[in-house]
Write a protein that binds this DNA or RNA. Sequence first.
DNA 1: TGTACATCAGTGAACGCGCGTTCACTGATGTAC
DNA 2: TGTACATCAGTGAACGCGCGTTCACTGATGTAC
Lengths: 208, 208
Amino acid sequence: MSHTLGIRQAQKQKTRQALLDAALALLEEQSLSSLGLREVTRAVGVAPTAFYRHFRSTADLGVALVEEALGSLHPMIRTTVSADGDPDERIARAVELISHHVASHTAHVRFIARERHGGVQPVREAIQDQLARFGEEVKDALAKDPVSDGWSDDDLLMLANLYVDQMLMTASLFLDALEATEEERARVVRIATRRMRLISIGRQHWLD
Amino acid sequence: MSHTLGIRQAQKQKTRQALLDAALALLEEQSLSSLGLREVTRAVGVAPTAFYRHFRSTADLGVALVEEALGSLHPMIRTTVSADGDPDERIARAVELISHHVASHTAHVRFIARERHGGVQPVREAIQDQLARFGEEVKDALAKDPVSDGWSDDDLLMLANLYVDQMLMTASLFLDALEATEEERARVVRIATRRMRLISIGRQHWLD
DNA sequence: TGTACATCAGTGAACGCGCGTTCACTGATGTAC
DNA sequence: TGTACATCAGTGAACGCGCGTTCACTGATGTAC
């Protein structure tokens, strides 16, 4: 059986999660580099000093948020890229999956988009690390596809990272359209789909 | 003859520019949403209150920086996209142009990459506006190319925005490689070139 | 050209406020016997 | 099961500091005559 945490540990984890959740909510409207430790503890309802029991700084908390936002995405990425079906079907499924993920994890996605090039170095690095891992994983998945026969490793990784960046761009498009009309969101789906299709066509003719 | 500014106006513009320059330098290491007005005036060597003679807030200054960073880029974009030569030559020239621009305008490029999804709404909007204008301009240039015969307006704009985003991604790659070895920068050139080539191939076979 | 007045970019003191961090503490939970 | 001691998540007071903003000001520049 799984080990049950003691009351003390369980409560500590609960407070830690409350700090992460509160910070994520506050970060919808500002950048990590302007997020104050007191802001976060005030939102949770604990003393400012309690923060130090969990994180050394807001930058440290930011790195934890990166793990929370991207850490669980690896299996999803793998299955999406290696899915079968004709190219258009696969693209449609990928776009829909991104759309749903943005709708259900809005704050996490916004955080990643914002801090990817943000002002806090350790967080930037944590995000680049995770994205590099995604790139490797997509590359491995692409390598198994017959379409990749004759491709160099280097070109495969180039394409994999292009896909990863394209996923982020698509997520960002959906973010901007979250509060727009249904019609506008449909337009974003069409744009994202055709972008992916154009890349897919380029892939099919790469070795011509 | 051009009108010469009075001494007073000239001095005011000089101070304003000094504030913009100091802010841009400070923004290499932080986000706009954490930039303080006093930080900026301290760096320039004027009283904090002098700031209000030029900007209503740091957000207001940020919007001015967007104009400074992107406003002068429109002619450059137009000529780059509408240049002639075979596709590979054009791509090589575009990548080189981006590389040079990042090296000569590092702080401006970093500012745009950072604040495009940053925590200050008016600045985000100013950037999106400029990028949308770039998209329209690239679309107009693409429309004149025989390769675009038979393309719908919608598809042309989709491709144009894909190019614009790709330019920013490329700029961001060069930013990250600025302090790396010559070898690493050459690698970035190769990656960026092949990404563009893949998109270009997709474009050529779009109507197949 | 000289004079008298208007403009206005930049000053400097003052304000109230929230910040990050320190420290000794409390009291519930955990552990050894 | 009960007792005595250890651990440690969260507290609350205190600190020095830099922040954004206000206000009346100064003195060089501009303008009207």
